[in-house]
């Protein structure tokens, strides 16, 4: 049994090593089509893609300082290398209940138009490259207020990936006003 396990581990390591090298070679070969990098995150059981260019870093959840008399989606503030950053929960924006803070919860620090904010997500899946052409626009059926938040969506097996328009999201009055009001 133990030996089998050992064999298993040996095999796994072998596979990992070969995988590593194969990926490196495969990426070298296909860097031709027009792609854009996105960071795939999970908020309230839905997958969302954030443009990688807007993302600065991913953090583990530090100790948050609760701020009184702010809207509920502002979960608190924290100190990022001397800079005070607010933590925003996007779930209420997508008409979901506020997220609970769990062991796997992460903060994604975004910077857009000189403004840094930290988005609370349930999990970070990783970076992925999407062909720009294959991002489909959302159907007209959605509410106008909602639709402008997204650049489009991409259907993967069984689960749809919504590509966020981070400018629009961060321009939302409730976010913006509050942030400005807070900042001002």
């Amino acid at each position: 049994m133990n030996r089998h396990r050992d064999d298993d581990i040996q095999t796994i390591l072998q596979e990992m090593r070969s995988d590593y090298w194969r990926h490196l070679e495969a990426d070298n070969e296909q860097a031709s089509a027009a792609t854009e990098d996105f960071l795939v995150v999970r908020i309230a059981d839905r997958r969302y893609a954030l443009p990688a260019g807007d993302c600065r870093e991913v953090l583990r959840l530090p100790a948050l300082v609760r701020v009184p008399r702010v809207p509920a989606h502002i979960r608190g503030i924290f100190n990022l290398r001397g800079e005070i950053v607010a933590v925003t929960d996007l779930a209420p924006l997508f008409a979901s209940p506020p997220q609970e803070i769990l062991a796997g919860s992460r903060l994604v620090v975004t910077a857009r138009g000189g403004m840094k904010t930290a988005l609370l997500v349930a999990a970070v899946e990783g970076l992925t490259s999407l062909e720009t052409a294959r991002i489909e626009p959302l159907a007209d059926g959605a509410a106008a207020g909602q639709r402008e938040l997204f650049r489009g969506k991409r259907n993967e097996e069984g689960e749809s990936l919504l590509v966020l328009n981070l400018d629009k999201v961060l321009e939302r009055p409730e976010l913006l006003i509050d942030q400005k009001g807070q900042m001002s």
């Binding site: 590593y20 990098d37 960071l39 990783g126 970076l127």
Partner: peptide
Amino acid sequence: LLSLNAAIEAAGAGEAGKRFSIVANEVRRL
């Protein structure tokens, strides 16, 4: 987390960070 941030960093670097992003990705996979 580190590899993720590295990847983000690489993505921010554009074409220059391409190969780095691959390494970061592999680190993350490990």
